[in-house]
Design a binder for these strands. Structure first.
Length: 559
RNA sequence: UGGGACGUCGCCAAGCUGGUUAAGGCACGGGGUUUUGAUCCCCGCAUUCGCAGGUUCGAAUCCUGCCGUCCCAGCCA
């Protein structure tokens, strides 16, 4: 029923896959999503996930989830669990769960193979020295004095590195390629470093750990990955990726293809900065609803369908781009518009008395759960003499084209009847505190008189029946489109101080209060809301605003 | 002053092995429907493809030059 699962625009990677399938290069495709378990996934990762899983699924292939866990200093099982949870939540099932660490043994064997062929050597200089010899962007590097060690000596040292005979940093294993290569990645890259650190999966089994370049392509080859998709910054690594596979007895020949990361405006998207926001408590955690993390979006009320649809629409290319937040918002509006049950809630209450409604009585009126979808049924909404309406729906001295309530004016109460504002009550300070209105019994929904036209329709809740709720409103995390554009100013300076505002005393109709975490609603005329996990813990429902409805009126007023 | 890549409407993005009027989405503007100023439905929205030359009967698509932007000098990924 959801139209949000729609066509994916084609892209260059998809075209490559089609060519490879048609030419017979591959009978089926195998992809992988390779996160490092050192942080939480964000909307940018979702692009890669959708691409890898989406492609495989479209062409009958399969996708592995592989943790790139080659740096025990930064990685943890907690992160791995959170990542798996996020991938599943997005709606994808991996073919197999793998880890780069599953291949440490094989990787070690292949390193020995390189050593035996004279294509790798043990360098016993320290990191600073090696760096100083790497040359610069315009100058070639210098060869290490250890570059010419004999195969026997290299084998001896490398096996002893593995056996734990040396301290951290005493030696590294390097590939012997070309210190004068214009591509710096080819200037004898480090394959192994000594790290006496426990790994979250292999424990103390290893004290040497492979570098990314030495692990990634080989892991792809082991798994029979046909198309190894990664982001643009690895373009320079491709020659190295290929050099390794050509110089070991690789079981298959994966092809690395790079695409541009997906960025959004008014936020930041690097794990490092996201972690900084969490650690410095600028947000409440990785799942703060203002965060562009999968966990944050989930808590905010985004659906997996909307995120998949979003990336499907955006496409994949090699040009770096920053997507307007509005496009993501459009995706969730589209999805929720079709599926969210409707309800009424008053965020900033103003008391309204129906003067000709009998005191002490109440009734239930039937209202559609979804006006455009009868199959979703109806709900019972309590109605009585005292109501709450939205403060902003009344103005004493309104501008032209104000279709809401004004003194002497008429408006329809959604799902009920037409009312006229007879009297405005004020407190000593002169502020409006109450409206006395009379309703037209002939205009009740369902009666012929309901066809009478009035300009505006407003939402309301019955004061005696409404449930008090906390509503959390979110705005963009940063107040500028690109917080990183200004190199002089720290991006934290651009944090939006009004990104969160909390309404403690909102009133929601009972059908909304009955929901729980994971349930979403459209508060009619306002937006889409979902119960926060905090909901219910203190008795009072807590709802997050996922996104507001489009508001042409507000836009008009702003000019 | 090295290497790699990118530049099509405000934001994304097809097209790019040359061939009539440069897809689509978002945004925006106009109109219609409407008990959500929502949704929905119409219509409009790049004589132009970073710039300048060239090749060609014909170029966003080929060639040359220039300009702009991004990435690379971790024992991070």
């Amino acid at each position: 029923m959801s139209s949000s699962e729609q066509v994916t625009t084609t892209n260059f990677i998809r075209n490559i896959v089609i060519d490879d399938l048609e030419s017979g290069k591959h009978e089926t495709i195998v992809t992988r999503f390779p996160p490092e378990p050192n942080g939480h996934l964000h909307i940018g990762h979702a692009k890669s996930i959708c691409l890898n899983f989406g492609l495989a699924s479209e062409f009958g292939g399969r996708t592995n989830l592989r943790f790139d866990d080659t740096n025990p200093l930064k990685e943890s099982e907690d992160y791995a669990q959170a990542i798996m949870n996020d991938v599943r939540w997005l709606g994808f099932k991996w073919h197999e769960l793998r880890h780069a660490s599953d291949y440490f043994g094989q990787l070690y064997e292949w390193a020995l193979h390189l050593v035996e062929n004279g294509q790798a050597y043990v360098d016993s200089q320290d990191a600073d020295t090696i760096r100083s010899q790497r040359g610069s962007l315009t100058e070639p590097g210098q060869e290490s004095p250890y570059r010419t060690r004999s195969i026997e000596e290299n084998r001896d040292l490398f096996t002893r590195m593995q056996a734990g005979e040396f301290e951290n940093g005493a030696h590294v294993l390097r590939a012997k390629i070309d210190m004068a290569a214009p591509n710096i990645n080819l200037r004898d890259p480090v394959l192994y470093r000594i790290l006496h650190a426990a790994h979250h999966r292999t424990g103390d089994e290893w004290c040497i750990y492979p570098m990314y370049d030495w692990a990634h392509g080989q892991s792809d080859a082991i798994e029979g990955i046909t198309h190894s998709l990664c982001t643009l910054e690895f373009e320079d690594h491709r020659p190295l990726y290929e050099w390794f596979l050509e110089n070991i007895p690789a079981p298959s020949s994966p092809r690395q293809i790079e695409f541009a990361r997906g960025n959004l405006d008014y936020t930041v998207m690097s794990k490092r900065r996201l972690k900084q926001l969490v650690d410095a408590e600028h947000v409440s955690g990785w799942d703060d609803p203002r965060m562009p993390t999968i966990a944050g979006l989930r808590r905010r009320g985004y659906t997996p369908q909307s995120i998949r649809a979003f990336w499907g629409e955006m496409g994949v290319s090699k040009s770096e781009s920053i997507i307007e937040m509005g496009v993501l918002e459009n995706a969730i509006r589209n999805d929720l518009n079709e599926r969210a049950p409707r309800g009424m809630a008053v965020l900033e209450p103003l008391k309204l008395i129906l003067s000709n409604y009998p005191e002490g009585e109440s009734e239930f009126i039937e209202a559609a759960v979804h006006p455009q979808n009868e199959a979703m049924g109806s709900r019972r909404v309590p109605l009585s003499r005292e109501l709450w309406i939205e403060r902003g729906d009344f103005m004493e001295d309104p501008p032209r084209k104000f279709f809401r309530l004004k003194p002497g004016g008429e408006v329809r109460l959604r799902n009920a009847f037409i009312i006229r504002c007879d009297e405005v009550i004020r407190d000593d300070a002169g502020d409006v505190i109450e409206l006395h209105c009379s309703f037209d019994p002939e205009s009740r929904s369902g009666l012929p008189g309901a066809k009478r036209k009035v300009k505006g329709t407003i939402h309301w809740v019955s004061a005696a029946h409404a449930v008090k709720a906390e509503i959390r409103l979110y705005d963009r995390l940063f107040s500028v489109a690109n917080p990183l554009a200004d190199k002089e100013t720290d991006y934290l300076e651009f944090l939006n101080p009004d990104s969160l505002s909390v309404i403690e005393d909102a009133w929601v109709e009972p059908s909304i209060a009955e929901g729980g975490p994971g349930d979403y609603f459209q508060f009619e005329r306002q937006g889409y809301f979902t119960h926060d996990p905090d909901s219910g813990s203190g008795g009072k429902p807590v709802l997050n605003r996922t996104v507001s409805l489009r508001d042409t009126w507000a836009k008009l007023r702003k000019g």
